[in-house]
Design a protein around this nucleic acid. Sequence first.
RNA 1: GUGCCUAUAGCUUAAUGGUAAAGCACUGCUCUGUGGCAGCAGACACACGGGUUCGAUUCCCGUUAGGCACCCCA
Length: 440
Amino acid sequence: MPNKKEKIKTVNKKKQRGPRVELPQSLRGMSDILPKDELWWKTVWHAGETVSELHNFSFIETPIVEPAALFELGVGASTDIIEKEMYTFRTKGGERVSLRPEGTAPVMRSFLEHHLGYFASPLKAYYVGPMFRYERPQAGRERQHHQWGFEIIGDSDPLYDAQVIIIALDFFKALKLKDITLKINSIGCRVCRPTYKEKLKNYYQSERAKLCRDCERRLEMNPLRLLDCKEEGCRLIRARAPIILDYLCQGCNNHLKSVLELVEDNSINYEPDPYLVRGLDYYSRTVFELVHASSGLALAGGGRYDYLSEILSGRSVPAVGVALGLERIIDTMIKSGNVPHFRTKPKIFFTAVGEQAKKASLRIMSELRSSGIVVVEALGKKSLKAQLKLADKIKAPLALIFGQREVFEKTVIVRNMESGAQETVVIDRLVEEVKKRLKS
RNA sequence: GUGCCUAUAGCUUAAUGGUAAAGCACUGCUCUGUGGCAGCAGACACACGGGUUCGAUUCCCGUUAGGCACCCCA
């Protein structure tokens, strides 16, 4: 006997194993969003839609691929994002194109290309979609990630700086995400920033011998980044470094003051951070990050970009915006014990036994669905037992049982899954009866 | 791009220089038209490639992917 069994086993195994093929995997740093995370993503999308509507932001969507020059000009050719992290390639037609590393430059491009200033002034628009950066993945960093962004284009009033901060915080509030701190700074304008940069460079030059190796490099490449170094020695040097606030011009100073006043007026928990500098060239004046307390991760970042339009088109259009990192937000919510609070409709489970019943059931399910009832089935399963097991698994409040007998009687059994009570209902009244039971 | 760590079933984790075990999940049976509980049975894995070896899932190297740090950023 055992011999027989073994023989069959091996035969089956051989049959099942086809030729070995290698499944192409997803690329590094690019992950699938799987059904198990559906509720998280819907929670975020729903919060985003709600907040956008309440603030009257219009929807805009730009292509994922743009001319490489858009970002090289807009974001800044010497920034790390462009220099090392952008996916740039040639198309068959020979154009140099890039996968967008961020959303602001494309929205500005669209604003200028379609003269959206005529649509609304200022234009308030939101976008959501994937962004691409060729980086080494680690916690809170992926090569493809999703951002939800808000832009206000066409006005330089500090009120709008405050508004983008508020809308981002409203987003977090809608997600019930707590412990968010606003880190804020001004990086000045092209009048005052160069002076400060020079001062900073001079100061660090004098301390050069004590700097770490990275900072020696930063001194030449990007002096503002010196302020970011986490080395103990460099931090000590930083403590006595000139800070930009002392070098802001009158205009920038007033602007920052107004923004901070508005932030305080709205009782926003904030921390002025004179060392906050952001890696994109187009920022001017206000820059900020919204940081989650326990992880220290920036969940959103933004600022004013009054020069972007000029760089792209020669026309001066002031603007301010913010972008939220969706993967980081979901990750943070999971880690801080939040639950997805997106509400799905109750699902009722339809079971059918026997060929005839199964054939007739599609029509009945259609009728239920037309009335807005979510119907789940597993008609591929033979036994009623297996079908009811699934009904239990998805926590359906009601199961409908439709078999040979019911086909003839033109009825359906409605089973309350919690109490186990069941009633026979004529098909004509099924929608009505199901609705009645879902309400109570 | 640099450095360190990791890779066993769908998931979480064992063991082993002689091709692998468990829990959860899955399929089915006990129960031919009634879920949750239980029992039983079944299917499913050593990431890929190379080397050392009589023999490698185990040791070594490479590739790929994941984690962490740097760099930078959402």
